[in-house]
Design a protein around this nucleic acid. Structure first.
Lengths: 354, 354
DNA sequence: CTGAAAGCGCTTACAG
DNA sequence: CTGAAAGCGCTTACAG
């Protein structure tokens, strides 16, 4: 006999000489069906290689046990960790994750939202997105609950989880100020994104609290990538009165700054202290290794998925969860340069300006 | 009037005063339906916020426009790039990707295969897996075609894409041999994995061709991670007659080796040359930057998805595609140390052995 | 405990 | 061009 397509419950029903309803119940371990019958049915199912159709089940139950995850790009170590966290709890709880990249492109974002809607995902997780209002509304209009992770415009959303940027930023700054630095620069992400705004604000508050000035020329904005970090750091280091420390928006930016320092023949941390943010794997493999603020990336992904699960179970979990960053002190920070070192540094600077 | 659930084609049919068959056709842009009617229907659909149910469609068409992607873990830069490639062409072609991690755990692998089967994915992509025979058979037994990417036991599968390890390995070795190195070590991945076997074989062939000996003590096996790379490199460098160059299985291993060298106060590349494999982002941000063999990771993901698409379209694309790696020369390799430098090096080695 | 029936929301051959 | 009907493979209230 020729099989056409996978075996279904009616195939099993036929050989078991019961109705397909009974097969369905048996396979769900319903207490309604006779023990022996159930065993017989399960045996047949096993031996026939039966694999329940999730799509048929989804149609009948109007739930897909599926969550949509939107990321700017999956080829990013931060995102990768977050998604790993999401996937691990999703997997534990029998959910599948559908992954989609937005590339911060409104067109793509629309497509993604539509696709998730059509697939009837039970919920949506949005990681580190720069979504604007339009996309946000679109997602919000869908039946599926949405949880944001470190998003840049979380205002309109009901649920989110993010790092406590302000507190984390203060920790980083307290470290540098404690080391005696007085001219500390900040290289941010693009202006206007929430996490940049908050980290910058922690930077400013810390300087103020320490009674230090906050000259505007020490604040730069990159784009969260290494190349811009390098460019901005170079500008800072070539300036007449360069900083002795730079607090960077993230590790990528710090990587760029480290490279700029090396190109200018400055020694880190002797001439320049550097602090990053994220604690990507790479942060512990630069030389010197980066002092940075660790974000619990996997944990954030896991928590976000847990919140979503609670939502799906009808619960109403806390809406705006904040997690704390941890300062990881490594080799890229040290006491403020001595007067002599500072002198050499400045001289280099002067030389470099031609 | 209260809506219960999303609007369906019968809702639209009701207001358009046509049958739901006609609505279905109109929404599919079938030429069978009258132009004006079609427009009217589409307008109603648009205004009512209609979103077709992919699950109902999947049940009817017995195809889900969905591909399952299995990775060991998504929190890995290599995998992230590959998945980005897959996702980009999937998205272009209207496919959704369901992501699942196996963690190289047989239990998880079974679950993943089962889940993909239940979800009736149209095809499966397996990235950099160490799947053994059992898992392989399981996947193969499913209706969905399978394409492997850099897998370690591709034997039984019909389709795969992988880097040409042998050729790539020879390029790396030719570079080192060309620089005058004669004692070149190899730090591999775990013994027995295909890519390790092939790279090792390229290493051996190159030595042989150059008339150089291949002493077994210069061959070590790590696990593809930095920590083991560091441990193995340290063993090599502390040995009585240490290598002047190390060819590493991948960049992670090379990262570990670089750190080992730094801890032993060896200068790279003056005392020791280092070559990696992959060209992860981090490879260009170590100091010195890593000489390595670039794998076109995104490209491989993209190609794999294209092969799968061809398969789904009924085609029979080439079965075992090989892509070429590119040698990227950076700062971690240099001419063999001079006799004097070698002397200092050996002395350090002796000192280090206490 | 079991089965017949309806329904989930589509697609598509068939008949007109 | 259009509609009625069957079917995709499940779940589940209802009746027995």
């Amino acid at each position: 006999m020729v099989r056409k397509g996978p075996v279904s419950i009616v195939d099993i029903a036929r050989v078991a000489r019961v109705s397909h309803s009974t097969v369905s119940r048996a396979l769900q371990n319903s207490p309604l069906v006779n023990g022996e019958t159930a065993e017989r049915i399960k045996k047949i199912a096993r031996e026939s290689g039966y694999l329940a159709s999730a799509v048929a089940r989804s149609l009948a139950t109007r739930t897909t046990r599926t969550v949509g995850v939107v990321v700017p790009t999956i080829a990013d170590p931060f995102i990768g960790e977050v998604v790993a966290g999401i996937e691990s709890v999703a997997n534990e709880r029998g959910y599948s994750v559908i992954l989609a990249s937005s590339h911060a492109d409104p067109q793509r974002e629309m497509k993604v939202a539509r696709s998730f809607g059509e697939r009837r995902v039970d919920g949506i997780l949005v990681a580190a997105s720069r979504v604007g209002a339009a996309y946000g509304e679109l997602l919000a209009s869908m039946q599926a609950p949405v949880v944001l992770i470190n998003n840049q415009h979380p205002g309109d959303f009901a649920r989110s989880i993010m790092i406590d940027n302000l507190a984390a930023s203060r920790k980083a700054m307290a470290h540098l100020i404690g080391l005696g630095h007085r001219r500390i620069a900040y290289i941010g992400d693009r202006t206007g994104f929430q996490s940049d705004t908050e980290r910058l604000s922690g930077y400013r508050q810390s300087l103020k609290k320490a009674g230090l000035p906050s000259p505007p020329e020490l604040i730069r904005h990159g784009d969260g990538k290494a190349e811009e970090g390098e460019r901005m750091a170079e500008q800072l280091l070539r300036s007449p009165d360069p900083p002795t420390a730079i607090f960077c928006y993230n590790d990528m930016t710090a990587l760029g700054a480290l490279r700029a320092a090396q190109r200018l023949r400055l020694r880190v941390p002797r001439d320049l202290s550097l602090v990053g943010f994220d604690d990507l794997f790479v942060a512990s493999y630069t030389s010197p290794a980066l002092t940075t603020v660790r974000q619990p990336m996997q944990e954030m992904g896991r928590k976000a998925m847990q919140i979503l699960l609670e939502l799906l179970a009808g619960g109403a979990p806390r809406s705006h969860l904040k997690v704390q960053g941890e300062l990881i002190v490594r080799g890229s920070t040290a006491r403020q340069p001595s007067a002599a070192a500072r002198q050499r540094f400045l001289q280099k600077g002067v030389l470099l300006q031609r």
